[in-house]
Design a protein around this nucleic acid. Structure first.
Lengths: 313, 313
DNA sequence: AAGACTAATGCTTTTATGACAATAATAGGA
DNA sequence: TCCTATTATTGTCATAAAAGCATTAGTCTT
């Protein structure tokens, strides 16, 4: 038995004191109301109404029951409306996670804009290299580099995530640009540490990608400090293209063309920056508007970067 | 969809965060829980849980929904329990209606006893000649004279309801006992007025019951005052046997044997005093205990009366 | 006294729920 | 790293419940 429906019938019937009117209200035949009420009474083991074929009235127990049930029904109605309103009105917390570096350069300003656009939404921005799971509800939106895309989330490509070997013009003038892996071994190199370990440099040799055995002068999980070290001419680093666009453009850094392509993560796989979010099984407006705004800002940002790069070349 | 069941599943699942545990709790396969929750989510148009095959957690909306739903569910549980408790524990109001005269003689003391027996029950005793409808919920128990019994109520016979022509020994000494209807027309007679009119006297003539055309000296809806007038020797009256048992027994009144039987209401139909109450479709304990107690007292009273009558004869 | 309105009931059709089995996905351990 | 155990989901079927419709029975009104 659909108890909740029976209770709705009960409440309406208690109000109208008419089976037919109640039935009309719910667009069902009056026999349905009659049967549901009867079932309800049988379930409770008590008569709720006194019926004459012509009139209906509440019993003492009916009044008692109504007094308890009516507010509960109302609560349920309200709850439903709240949820449905929530899924339309953008309020609540949106949890965003993003990679350091990229976050500071691009996501932070985008989120600032988002905050001013939707002051009612609360944002929880978690900048970390940890890969927070969307599917286990640790975040609503994830912005990170990825090669192969998770299956159950929607991924919007924000731009490339390729690594460039860079040094300052000053450094190149003093030491020359490295050409071989042996050159590298003699050069001061800086590496990035992720929670899963140091991001090794890999090189293509005879069609295979191999890790280059290097002893880095400086390892950090703080990207900007590595960038700063390179800009200061202290050595070489493999840095993501989006992280050096500005420095390339204004001449602070130069890209070093190596004999082969270089990659930091597992060999040669094409990587990109992605914005990831739950498939919109159900329309969570707060997530939707955030995604839309972020995508707009971040892809625009990446276009600008690309333009800047082109200009530098 | 049984929404209430879905909500119960939801509440339990939000608490346990385990489909299988929830399913065990309700003794249903976990697939049922899974489906009900999915249906609920589809109905609401919003995701309530984030599921991994290994773990379940509430979404923001889920928490919100739970906050509204949980108290409502509890209210419904409480309401159910209240009703079921009510139908077992004898509390609340019992409305009793009874005929004047009979009520004062027999019902009043019985109700007094009932009140002391069940101090938690409230009694509403309506002494009237009006025939209050049980079926339209105007009373829980009715005690009245009846010939043919209503169909949808339970009737317990309390005793006869036959009318006797009586006068005081003093009156008979002075005027002699009437023998014919003509005798009656010359005698001072007292009649009872019901809400439906004066209770006419009827007589069997050639097998047919006919109303005797009399000009009563005194008409009242107050039985005791008619009785008193008769006892004082002021005239004759047709009085119910249960109303004159004591006076017959102690010699204050004498029954007059007439040439035919006499009746007050529609001709010659056998009438009785009945206690009427709703068929116990559902066990309303307060009514049940009241009926039991009243029946016990009133039938015992009627036995005593009968004994008293026998003794007087 | 008859008609109109209302609730209940009997029956059929449709719907949805539960049961069982199988699958997919993950966490933990050897 | 592979294997196993646990957990949620999906597919299919049988069953139970609800709706729909027509009819009956009982009141109130004119």
């Amino acid at each position: 038995m659909d108890r909740l429906r029976a209770l709705r019938y009960f409440a309406k019937l208690a109000q109208t004191l008419s089976f037919s009117e109640t039935a009309d209200h719910f667009r069902v035949p009056s026999s349905s109301v009659s049967r549901r009420i009867k079932d309800l009474e049988a379930d409770l083991g008590a008569a709720l109404f006194v019926r004459t074929t012509r009139s209906v009235s509440l019993t003492d127990l009916g009044k008692l029951y109504l007094g308890e049930i009516a507010p509960a029904l109302q609560s349920i109605e309200i709850a439903d409306e709240m949820v449905q309103a929530q899924s339309v009105a953008p309020t609540g917390t949106v949890r965003i996670t993003a990679m350091p570096g990229y976050a500071e350069l691009y996501v932070l300003p985008a989120v600032q804009k988002l905050r001013s656009l939707y002051p009612d939404i609360e944002f929880d921005l978690n900048i970390t290299d940890q890969v927070l799971s969307l599917s286990s509800n640790e975040a609503d939106i994830a912005i990170r580099a990825a090669s192969e895309l998770p299956d159950h989330v929607i991924a919007r490509r924000l731009g490339d995530h390729t690594f460039k070997l860079v040094a300052s013009p000053d450094y190149i003038n003093r030491n020359g640009a490295p050409r071989t892996s042996d050159d590298l071994r003699d050069s001061p190199v800086f590496m990035y540490r992720t929670p899963r370990g140091v991001l090794n440099w890999q090189m293509k040799k005879n069609g295979n990608w191999e890790t280059v055995d290097l002893a880095p002068k400086y390892v950090s999980n703080h990207g900007p400090s590595i960038l700063e070290s390179v800009v200061k001419g202290q050595g070489l680093a493999l840095l993501p293209s989006w992280g050096i666009a500005a420095e390339i453009a204004n001449g602070q850094l130069e890209e070093i063309d190596f004999e082969d392509a270089w990659l930091s993560t597992s060999g040669g796989v094409e990587m990109g920056m992605y914005l990831l979010y739950h498939p919109p099984k159900f329309r969570l407006e707060k997530v939707k508007v955030s995604v839309d705004s972020l995508i707009a800002d971040l892809t625009r940002g990446s276009c600008q970067r690309n333009l800047a790069l082109s200009a530098a070349m």
